[in-house]
Write a protein that binds this DNA or RNA. Structure first.
Lengths: 194, 194
DNA sequence: CTTGCTCCTGGCACTGGGTGCCACTAGCCT
DNA sequence: AGGCTAGTGGCACCCAGTGCCAGGAGCAAG
């Protein structure tokens, strides 16, 4: 219990330090040693917490994916699949206002730093798997089939695009941006025809 | 001239060796030294040819992107944007039959090896930029705006999905697979409603 | 032929990410 | 107290990638 508590606290310190250092000096210019030092742990322990330097930016991403999975499992089967996926994305990313600055910082890093951009693909693959499985359940299809894969990949593309737009424009809420972007996708890009 | 020729030949040897070694033993289990040795060049020269080990799999990708860019620039402006992008993707990936085995090998590596999957994001970003610029030209929009980004990201998602489906199913041609996948995307996933 | 220039190459050494191994400590159970 | 377990840190190692420098091939002018 105490160990878990200190472990959690240490992880929190690491993630704060990582966000701070990477933002101010750039991901590549900061060594894992520096992050570990700033968090008061050893380099070795850092790499036990996070399998890669980049993972310190993502926090507990497995829990994130698990939440998304649960939401999709418990979703109303009568609703259109895209609407369900959009709502799940929106709910998973519905942060408290106090957490928004950290979220912005994290997403800005992930979307701009090449090394993190590359690493993100590995995280996104976990999301895609969960979404593809949901589509497969809804359509009695193979999760590895064309449609589940396509829906997973393109909704994820929509979500990251929405994130980028949200970062660029401080005014609109993330949830609204997600819904707007999904609408565009689901309707086959109506503004291209207008 | 002779230098360029040997340089080209050496690059060719490297790419063959890389494909062969990575396929048989896995990307991570093969060191850059081994690839360099197999191609008859030094490790140092290997990293002058390719900035990263993963780049040996991609060949001359810049030329690929440039071809795509030219195709999009010279496309018929009256045609729907998605159709133009689809046709450009199909034409850029219209390989001779002799080259298909190598293409399959390459794509299988890129889509299955985690390290290559991650690295691919950096290459895809170049494609996305070109496509987003095309959409922006067609709609008199900002390339960094929502619609160009969304179209670029989701068409790229469609293209990679089509590639994966093509890998899984030997029977259908790559171009047909691309067109089928783009149709699904452009129509807002009609098979989800059926 | 020789000198000088340029480009390509390879060797060397170094940084930094990531990992296996081991020794140490802290709690905890009996 | 003795033994078990889990977390930690130090150490050594491998490998990707880079800067630097020393050759060597080709070419031009003398």
């Amino acid at each position: 219990m105490t160990q878990t508590a200190t472990g959690e606290a240490a992880r929190d310190r690491v993630e704060r330090a990582a966000l701070e250092l990477f933002t101010s000096r750039g991901f590549d210019a900061v060594t894992a040693d520096e992050v570990a030092d700033a968090a008061g742990i050893s380099r070795r322990t850092f790499f036990r917490y996070y399998p890669a330097k980049a993972d310190a930016v993502w926090g507990d991403f497995a829990a994130h994916v698990e939440r998304l999975d649960r939401l999709l499992h418990s979703a109303d089967g009568g609703r259109p699949v895209l609407a369900t996926v959009c709502a799940a994305y929106a709910e998973v990313n519905d942060y408290r206002d106090d957490d928004l600055p950290a979220l912005r910082q994290r997403m800005r890093l992930i979307l701009t730093e090449p090394a993190l951009q590359a690493h993100s693909q590995l995280r996104y693959a976990e999301i895609d798997r969960v979404v593809a499985e949901h589509v497969a359940r809804s359509t009695a299809d193979d999760p590895a089939g064309l449609l589940p894969r396509l829906v997973a990949a393109s909704t994820r593309a929509a979500a990251t695009t929405a994130f980028a737009a949200w970062l660029a424009d401080e005014r609109t809420a993330l949830g609204d941006q997600l819904r707007r972007t999904f609408d565009e996708l689901a309707a086959g890009f109506p503004s291209l025809r207008g």
